[in-house]
């Protein structure tokens, strides 16, 4: 009798987690960021409840600075799946002109992602929110639980996490408190790509290499989609064959030079490239331990 392959084992574990949440919480919601990890997470949710429908809505926290292709993909994806999609933006901050250039990435993320997310969760009275974060992404994430407790202000206390043993999860919360749930905790970037390949999961075309007009700024390739992203001294506007390794807001997510225009080529690139995927995300490097600070405040 054979053991499960690593992808089968991860799938079985994630489905177990998703079912526990759907069964134990009153109002769960699945954060949907449109990225590859979200796509995998939604597929796992489909599998968890098959032949029934996914019994909770998807929530997209839209900074309005996402790539246009992401939004197109999102709307098509949700419609085809027949799942309820909630889109939330921090409209008051946006009306006040919030963008990463005026506020800096830290404050911009704080308002348009963290604050917006907390507002959306409060508005929906959600007591559990699934996120697609993986522990291999960043050092502070390596210590996060699968069921991660948030106090009534939505904050994470890394020193006071609930012990988590076996596959038994403690999801008990008081009104106002909530749990963030990470069903992909044990997946790596490689696992996610292989699963997308094996399962034939649709993803945003930005992940695939093609010739794109980008601002070349040192090692960063920035797609100038937003009006406020203007060439600075030393920037060059060039056509570069490139792709996104992770998706975020267009002003803050750089592309990487690449020829990988198919899934096998992306996986082959991953085997060869030894830079972690968040390196092209400006926000993680704001200062030492910046992801941990964001997470404490409620960022995913």
């Amino acid at each position: 009798m054979s053991r499960l392959s690593h992808l089968q084992a991860l799938e079985a574990e994630s489905i177990h987690i998703i079912r526990e949440v759907a069964s134990e919480f009153q109002r769960p919601v699945m954060l949907y960021s449109i990225g590859k990890d979200s796509s995998v997470m939604v597929r796992l949710a489909q599998k968890a409840f098959y032949p029934g429908p996914i019994p909770f809505p998807l929530l997209h926290v839209d900074t309005t600075y996402k790539f246009k292709e992401m939004i197109e993909f999102r709307d098509k994806f949700a419609a085809e799946l027949g799942v309820k999609l909630i889109v939330h933006s921090n409209t008051s901050a946006l009306q006040a002109g919030a963008n990463p250039f005026r506020l800096g990435t830290e404050r911009c993320c704080g308002l348009l992602k963290t604050q917006s997310l907390l507002d959306a969760l409060r508005a929906g009275s959600y007591d559990a929110a699934f996120g697609g974060a993986r522990r291999d992404e960043e050092k502070s994430r390596a210590k996060e639980r699968i069921f991660s407790f948030r106090d009534s202000l939505g904050q994470w206390d890394p020193k006071n996490q609930r012990p988590e043993l076996w596959n038994i999860f403690n999801g008990r919360v008081e009104p106002g408190e909530s749990i963030r749930v990470f069903p992909l905790s044990n997946w790596t970037e490689m696992d996610v790509w292989q699963y997308i390949h094996v399962e034939n999961i649709p993803i945003v075309p930005l992940y695939f290499a093609k010739d794109r007009q980008v601002l070349v700024r040192g090692n960063s390739l920035i797609v100038p989609e937003q009006d406020f992203v203007k060439p600075q001294l030393g920037d060059k506007l060039e056509t570069v064959r490139c792709r996104m390794r992770s998706l975020g807001c267009s002003p803050c997510t750089g592309a990487v030079r690449s020829d990988a225009d198919t899934l096998p080529k992306i996986i082959a690139e991953l085997v060869a490239v030894r830079n972690s995927e968040r390196e092209n995300r400006v926000i993680d490097h704001d200062r030492e331990g910046s992801m941990e600070l964001k997470k404490r405040e409620g960022y995913f």
């Binding site: 690593h6 291999d136 502070s140 390596a142 210590k143 020193k159 996490q161 790596t188």
Partner: peptide, 27 residues
């Protein structure tokens, strides 16, 4: 492997951290 600020400050590991690596044979 030291992930959290408090640990870097104290130079010790204070919580379970999960690490991932793979060879050709196993993950």
């Amino acid at each position: 492997t030291d992930g959290l600020r408090a640990e870097r400050e104290q130079g010790i590991t204070i919580d379970v951290a999960y690490r991932y690596f793979a060879t050709i044979k196993r993950k």
